[in-house]
Amino acid sequence: MPSDLKSPTPLLMLGARAYSEVLLDMFECLSDQYSFDALVENQDRANCDTTVGDLPVIWHEDVASYLPTHKMVCALGTTLRNKWIEECEAMGFSFATLVHPSSVVSKRTALSDGVIIDAACVVAGYSTLGPHSRLGRRVSLGHHTKIGAYTTIHPGAVISGNCNIGSQVVLGSGTVVIDGVTIGDGAVTAAGTIVNKDIPPRVLAAGNPASIKREDYGPR
């Protein structure tokens, strides 16, 4: 093998539930860049007696030995994933950024550590995706838009240009956000919501146009 060819970066995946299988399936096309070696469980130690996608499941207290060689990815859908991620970062682990090759991402947009972009997304230029934010399948993200840390944008959402989406926000499938809108930290939109004005933090918004259905709701 030529010496200038790099071996795939070995990864541990936080989480051993259904979404872990989805990520393994989605990103097996990146096997030349990354190798998924094990999943990490932190709730039920009995799950460590099982496998997910033929990969072993290890207990979260046993990951230290992987630190010199492995990076991590997070397969938790909740925006409250920040606590476990921050614990792992405090141990010294870094997180890989995964972009499906079918997605188009401007080279002028900044992707932070731990960002995951699923298949068939389009991300315009001069935008920023914060640490551990996530775009589901077929998300369209406009120019000069900021996505905060730990935010999850579900499949088919459309976020226009010059928007400011806070941290730990959840945008439901098919949500449309009009140009220049700000959505506060921890807010949640229901599927199909049309957001044509600013949304305050920690509320549930739904409808066309969006209206506040519940206060003190997020993050989720």
Score class of each variant (00 low, 15 high):
residue 116 I to K: 00
residue 116 I to T: 11
residue 116 I to H: 01
residue 116 I to A: 06
residue 119 A to T: 12
residue 119 A to W: 01
residue 120 A to Q: 12
residue 120 A to E: 14
residue 120 A to K: 06
residue 120 A to G: 00
residue 121 C to T: 10
residue 122 V to T: 15
residue 122 V to G: 11
residue 123 V to E: 01
residue 123 V to H: 05
residue 124 A to L: 13
residue 124 A to E: 15
residue 124 A to C: 15
residue 125 G to L: 10
residue 125 G to C: 08
residue 125 G to F: 07
residue 125 G to R: 11
residue 126 Y to E: 14
residue 126 Y to V: 02
residue 126 Y to M: 09
residue 127 S to N: 10
residue 128 T to N: 13
residue 129 L to H: 08
residue 129 L to C: 03
residue 129 L to W: 01
residue 129 L to E: 03
residue 129 L to F: 06
residue 130 G to P: 04
residue 130 G to E: 07
residue 130 G to N: 07
residue 130 G to W: 01
residue 131 P to V: 11
residue 131 P to A: 15
residue 131 P to T: 10
residue 132 H to I: 11
residue 132 H to S: 13
residue 133 S to E: 07
residue 133 S to M: 08
residue 133 S to K: 07
residue 134 R to W: 13
residue 134 R to Y: 15
residue 134 R to G: 01
residue 135 L to A: 06
residue 135 L to C: 10
residue 136 G to E: 04
residue 136 G to T: 05
residue 136 G to M: 04
residue 137 R to S: 10
residue 138 R to I: 03
residue 138 R to V: 05
residue 139 V to F: 07
residue 139 V to M: 10
residue 139 V to D: 01
residue 139 V to S: 05
residue 139 V to C: 09
residue 140 S to T: 14
residue 140 S to C: 12
residue 140 S to H: 02
residue 140 S to M: 14
residue 141 L to M: 10
residue 141 L to H: 00
residue 141 L to V: 02
residue 142 G to R: 09
residue 142 G to Q: 08
residue 143 H to E: 10
residue 143 H to Q: 12
residue 143 H to Y: 02
residue 144 H to M: 09
residue 145 T to R: 04
residue 145 T to Y: 03
residue 146 K to M: 11
residue 149 A to P: 02
residue 149 A to D: 09
residue 150 Y to K: 06
residue 150 Y to N: 04
residue 150 Y to Q: 05
residue 151 T to R: 02
residue 151 T to A: 08
residue 151 T to W: 05
residue 152 T to E: 02
residue 152 T to N: 14
residue 152 T to Q: 11
residue 153 I to N: 00
residue 153 I to K: 02
residue 153 I to W: 00
residue 155 P to M: 06
residue 155 P to W: 12
residue 155 P to C: 06
residue 155 P to I: 06
residue 156 G to R: 05
residue 157 A to I: 03
residue 157 A to C: 14
residue 157 A to N: 02
residue 158 V to L: 12
residue 158 V to N: 13
residue 158 V to D: 12
residue 159 I to D: 00
residue 159 I to G: 00
residue 160 S to P: 08
residue 160 S to E: 12
residue 160 S to I: 04
residue 161 G to F: 05
residue 161 G to I: 08
residue 162 N to W: 09
residue 163 C to G: 07
residue 164 N to Q: 15
residue 164 N to A: 13
residue 164 N to Y: 09
